[in-house]
Design a protein around this nucleic acid. Sequence first.
DNA 1: TATGAATGAGACTTCATTCAT
DNA 2: AATGAATGAAGTCTCATTCAT
Lengths: 197, 197, 197, 197
Amino acid sequence: MARPAGVSGADTKQAIRAAAIQRIYRHGYEAMNLRGLAADVGLRVGSLHNYIPQKQEFLANLLDEIMTELLADFETHMAGVSDPQEALRQFVSFHVQWHTARKEEVFIGNMELRSLAPEQYARVAAKRKQYEKHLTAILSKGKKLGVWTIENPGITAKAILALLTGVSNWYRPDGSLSQPRLTKLYQLMVERMLRNP
Amino acid sequence: MARPAGVSGADTKQAIRAAAIQRIYRHGYEAMNLRGLAADVGLRVGSLHNYIPQKQEFLANLLDEIMTELLADFETHMAGVSDPQEALRQFVSFHVQWHTARKEEVFIGNMELRSLAPEQYARVAAKRKQYEKHLTAILSKGKKLGVWTIENPGITAKAILALLTGVSNWYRPDGSLSQPRLTKLYQLMVERMLRNP
Amino acid sequence: MARPAGVSGADTKQAIRAAAIQRIYRHGYEAMNLRGLAADVGLRVGSLHNYIPQKQEFLANLLDEIMTELLADFETHMAGVSDPQEALRQFVSFHVQWHTARKEEVFIGNMELRSLAPEQYARVAAKRKQYEKHLTAILSKGKKLGVWTIENPGITAKAILALLTGVSNWYRPDGSLSQPRLTKLYQLMVERMLRNP
Amino acid sequence: MARPAGVSGADTKQAIRAAAIQRIYRHGYEAMNLRGLAADVGLRVGSLHNYIPQKQEFLANLLDEIMTELLADFETHMAGVSDPQEALRQFVSFHVQWHTARKEEVFIGNMELRSLAPEQYARVAAKRKQYEKHLTAILSKGKKLGVWTIENPGITAKAILALLTGVSNWYRPDGSLSQPRLTKLYQLMVERMLRNP
DNA sequence: TATGAATGAGACTTCATTCAT
DNA sequence: AATGAATGAAGTCTCATTCAT
């Protein structure tokens, strides 16, 4: 069959992206086969190749897009904030929100780096590092201003990121904990960790 | 061909286990192919089936063994400790040590659950949950005794686990940070998080 | 989309033909894919089907056209020649010229017969045979008149054809050898082969 | 099924080689699909990959082997011959014999070079060139000694090769022409081409 | 006339697995 | 215990072809 009436390529592309994210999240990139992905969006496997010429490139682009969006959203969120204590609160609220709202994406963004070719890896890992550096910078600034006691801002940043990212492992939007309450909890934990004695 | 002189089946089995852990850690279970695994230990793929009759079962057993060892080691480590503050310190030191010394194993123990069949999954996940419950119990006890301010021990346990487990993402044994210093750092962070105001 | 200004269907058809000859010459009919052919002439593969409804038929027509042109040009070239020695000289000059000027076409005309369906094959091969018969007739006539010593005109014709056609394997129009000189060389070689002792 | 009783890999390898030569000869490398090749030798397509890991490499090796054997046989045949007239006679008899006895192989050795990757091409083409140089050397020597009138030994070598190789296009071992007679015919044609006037 | 979307057949290749030796 | 030979299912990808727009 040729092109069905009223079908737009852009819609299909979005559907494929969404389906791929779910499959990669649940079973990993290697286990995501194109046959299943095609079925998810109502295509035959041959048709998928109009949208995914190479599975490997598709993954690299997907991860790159995710990290790019994360960074862009982050910069929007943090615009105009300079006080480190406020910046940290905003960082936590941003991170918790993104990592609960788009947990599948951040999960594969962290996990499937290992499935990339070296050059692709470098491209995406650099963006991941950049995000981490934003947090390190906030901590360093607070340390310099004396608002927190931090011995090693680099390690502390990694620890905070691990702590916060862990939320995506268990949070359920339909659970008993509201987003604002959740954010508050994590802000408290992080602030206590840095508190002057 | 007959068995080459000086080679014991038990040695080969250990070598296969070690090679498999490295491969799964680096590229995931789905991407670990038996041909490559066989090559790692100097066998042909046909011979591997003397040790690994089924790839899927092999993974399930591997994950089960890892969790079993973790729990056994944990119980040994914690024997005779009952004070919650001391218990928490010991939990942190144990966890950090295990998750740096055997980071590949804990990583695949967390990640590759998704590659298990439902029944296998249940078996392993139960042990993982059991480990988490040990921490929750410590926190609950401390809360009851009033040594910490904890609103939700369940969530706090998850947060602490995420925080601590994160160490396996970046720690290098040949880096500048010694194990005791690392442990001390994480103990401090965790204690501050729970400290009464 | 509508037809771009200044583009005529006949031009496109010629461009496709030229591009196809180059691709078939260089990598063979089976390796010529329509996507690449379309790209060569600035079209998408879907548009190509306005000009090439069936790849297989396209090849058959192409080969048929080539042989038809060869025969027509040959008959024009040979008009009015009847003396066998002069006829042979004209045959050589014609063949060398055609097989250097249009070497891609004669090459695929010889090689890609095997890619035709039986019925298509018969149609084209008959024309090829007809060309060979012209040479055989010249040789037979010369033998009867006693101007050459030829034992087997059929085999000799095949040998001369192979000898002459070989020129297309190595001749470069921008090389050091001029067309007239080249023709003279081959005329000499052929005449010597047939010379009375 | 596993290994059938009494099957040797070496036999299978030879059978595959023979079947591949026939298929490539008849329809070209691109049109030779592994499914059909497997069927020819009574295997499933998956089994074929024990012998042909990569189709492309297989072709390159095949062509390389053919040229290597041709050169080796040639050197054996020409051992101890130094007089150029005798050498030319021996060249013709060798070439005609090889190109009738193994015409499929020489055909694909000539034709399928174009299906090779550049590096593979260079490897095989060098051997082809080497063979041609043997003939050029014979002609040059005869020219220097004054036994033949040759203006351009390079072109003459190409012409002779084309003439001789053409035999593989039409010779049938079960035809009316015996091998010795055939050889004699071609020796005569070649000698006449070079004869002093 | 040109395009983009879709198809289905078939290509090469990978892989876990089986089993006679 | 190890190997080589074979299998079949499944994987990614290519391609000629169709057709609504």
